Deep mutational scan, measured.
Amino acid sequence: DAEELIELVERALKEGREIILLGVRITSEEAGKWFIEWIRRFL
């Protein structure tokens, strides 16, 4: 579910982890915020 995915992304970014989803590397909080917004819009 989308909320679970958002929580995972937020937690990983807070822990300083690198996330790779759909071939996109997300390493900064700014990118994470963009990704979370995208999830909310399309899922």
Rank of each mutant, 00 (worst) to 15 (best):
Gly16Ile: 15
Leu22Glu: 00
Trp34Pro: 00
Gly32Thr: 09
Lys14Trp: 07
Glu7His: 12
Ala12Ser: 05
Leu43Cys: 15
Ile19Phe: 06
Ser28Trp: 13
Glu3Gln: 13
Ile26Met: 05
Arg17Cys: 15
Ser28Pro: 07
Asp1Tyr: 15
Asp1Met: 14
Thr27Leu: 14
Gly23Met: 13
Thr27Ile: 13
Leu22Ile: 08
Ala12Thr: 04
Ala31Glu: 15
Ala31Phe: 12
Ile6Pro: 02
Trp34Glu: 06
Phe42Lys: 03
Val9His: 01
Phe42His: 06
Leu13Ile: 12
Arg41Trp: 15
Arg25Gly: 05
Ile39Gln: 00
Leu5Ser: 01
Glu15Ile: 09
Trp38Thr: 01
Gly32Asn: 06
Glu37Gly: 06
Trp38His: 01
Arg11Trp: 10
Arg40Cys: 14
Arg25Ile: 10
Leu13Asp: 02
Glu18Trp: 11
Gly32Ser: 05
Leu43Ser: 03
Glu30Trp: 14
Leu21Phe: 07
Gly23Glu: 06
Val24Ala: 03
Ala12Leu: 11
Ile6Gln: 03
Leu43Ile: 09
Glu18Ser: 12
Ile20Ala: 01
Arg11Gly: 03
Glu37Ile: 12
Ile19Gly: 02
Leu43His: 03
Glu3Pro: 07
Glu10Ser: 09
Ile19Lys: 01
Trp34Val: 05
Gly23Cys: 11
Gly32Cys: 15
Glu10Cys: 15
Val9Ala: 03
Gly16Gln: 06
Glu37Arg: 09
Ile39Asn: 00
Leu43Asn: 02
Ile39Leu: 14
Leu43Lys: 03
Phe35Tyr: 04
Ala2Thr: 09
Ile6Arg: 05
Gly16Glu: 03
Arg40Gly: 02
Asp1Ser: 13
Lys14Pro: 04
Glu7Asp: 10
Thr27Asp: 14
Leu22Ser: 03
Asp1Ile: 15
Phe35Ser: 01
Val24Glu: 01
Thr27Lys: 08
Arg11Ala: 07
Leu13Val: 08
Ile6Gly: 03
Gly23Pro: 04
Lys14Val: 07
Ile6Phe: 07
Arg25Glu: 04
Val9Ile: 11
Ile39Ser: 00
Arg11Phe: 03
Glu18Leu: 12
Glu3Ser: 11
Gly23Ser: 08
Leu22Phe: 09
Ile39Lys: 00
Thr27Ala: 13
Ala12His: 05
Glu37Leu: 13
Leu22Thr: 02
Leu13Thr: 04
Leu43Gly: 02
Leu43Glu: 01
Glu4Gln: 13
Arg40Tyr: 10
Glu30Val: 13
Gly32Pro: 06
Leu5Lys: 01
Glu15His: 08
Ile26Tyr: 05
Arg17His: 08
Arg11Val: 05
Glu18Gln: 11
Leu5Ile: 06
Gly32Gln: 06
Arg25Ala: 10
Glu18Arg: 11
Gly23Arg: 08
Ile20Glu: 05
Ala2Asp: 06
Arg40Thr: 07
Arg41Cys: 15
Gly32Met: 14
Leu13Gly: 01
Lys33Asn: 07
Arg11Gln: 08
Phe35Ala: 02
Ala31Ile: 15
Glu37Lys: 09
Leu21Met: 05
Ile6Lys: 04
Leu22Tyr: 04
Glu3Asn: 12
Ile6Cys: 13
Ile20Ser: 03
Arg17Asp: 02
Leu5Phe: 09
Trp38Arg: 01
Ile36Val: 05
Glu37Thr: 07
Glu7Arg: 15
Gly23Trp: 14
Ile20Trp: 06
Arg11Glu: 05
Trp38Glu: 00
Ile36Gly: 01
Glu30Thr: 08
Leu22Gly: 02
Phe35Thr: 01
Val24Gly: 04
Leu5Tyr: 07
Ala2Arg: 08
Ile20Tyr: 04
Glu7Asn: 13
Leu21Arg: 03
Trp34Ala: 14
Trp38Lys: 01
Ser28Val: 08
Trp34Thr: 07
Ile19Gln: 01
Ser28Asp: 09
Ala31Val: 15
Arg40Leu: 12
Leu43Trp: 13
Gly23Val: 13
Thr27Ser: 10
Trp34Gly: 03
Glu15Tyr: 10
Trp38Val: 02
Gly16Trp: 14
Glu18Ala: 11
Phe35Glu: 00
Leu22Asn: 02
Arg17Ser: 04
Glu3Thr: 12
Glu10Pro: 00
Glu29Asn: 11
Leu8Tyr: 07
Phe42Asp: 00
Trp38Met: 05
Gly32Phe: 15
Ala2His: 10
Glu15Trp: 13
Ile6Leu: 09
Asp1Pro: 13
Gly32Ala: 14
Leu8Asp: 01
Gly32Glu: 04
Leu13Tyr: 04
Arg41Thr: 09
Lys33Gln: 09
Glu29Gly: 09
Glu10Met: 12
Val24Pro: 02
Leu22Gln: 03
Lys33Ile: 08
Gly32Ile: 15
Glu4Ser: 13
Leu8Arg: 08
Thr27Trp: 13
Leu5Cys: 11
Ile20Thr: 11
Ile26Leu: 05
Ala2Tyr: 15
Glu29Thr: 12
Asp1Asn: 13
Glu4Leu: 14
Ile36Met: 05
Phe42Val: 08
Leu43Met: 12
Glu4Gly: 13
Trp34Phe: 06
Trp34Met: 09
Arg41Pro: 01
Trp34Ser: 06
Leu43Pro: 00
Glu30Ile: 11
Arg17Gln: 04
Ile20Pro: 00
Ile20Gly: 00
Ile36Trp: 11
Ile6Glu: 03
Ile36Pro: 00
Glu10Leu: 15
Gly32Asp: 03
Lys33His: 07
Glu7Tyr: 11
Ser28Tyr: 07
Leu43Gln: 04
Arg25Ser: 07
Val24Leu: 06
Glu7Ile: 11
Gly16Asp: 02
Thr27Arg: 07
Glu10Tyr: 12
Ile39Pro: 00
Glu37Trp: 12
Arg40Met: 12
Glu18Ile: 14
Ile39Met: 08
Ile39Arg: 00
Glu37Asn: 09
Leu5Val: 04
Gly16Asn: 08
Arg25Trp: 11
Glu7Met: 12
Ile19Leu: 08
Asp1Gln: 13
Arg41Asn: 08
Ile26Gly: 01
Ile36Glu: 02
Asp1Glu: 09
Phe42Pro: 00
Leu22Arg: 05
Glu30Gly: 09
Arg41Gln: 09
Leu21Asp: 00
Arg41Glu: 05
Ile39Gly: 00
Glu37Cys: 15
Glu29Leu: 13
Gly23Lys: 08
